[in-house]
């Protein structure tokens, strides 16, 4: 399950950034960029939380 979540969350980050690059190239409307970014954000938080939360537990929190 974990590798799948990791791949999906990585894809979410790509989906978060790519539309703005395509918009910069003049090949996408801004409204579409905004919707994709929102969707990618939701996917990121849903899929990254289970595995990153676990990783954070293993890390030393007191460093800061």
């Amino acid at each position: 399950m974990r590798p799948i979540l990791q791949i999906v969350s990585l894809l979410a980050l790509i989906a978060l950034t790519l539309p703005s690059i395509v918009f910069l190239a003049g090949r996408m409307e801004l409204n579409m960029v905004k919707w994709i970014m929102l969707l990618a954000s939701i996917v990121w938080f849903v899929t990254a939380t289970p595995w990153l939360w676990k990783d954070n537990n293993a890390e030393k929190q007191d460093v800061a």
Binding site: L13, L16, T17, P19, S20, I21, F23, L24, G26, L30, V33, M37, S41, W44, F45, A48, T49, L52, W53, N56, N57, Q61, A64
Partner: peptide, 27 residues
Amino acid sequence: AKFANIASPWMVLVFLAFGFIGLRQFI
């Protein structure tokens, strides 16, 4: 603090997107 660690890579990329979008809007 844990949630901040999860949000961190996402936040960095949203900032990057701000730059790309703003640049295009200027163009």
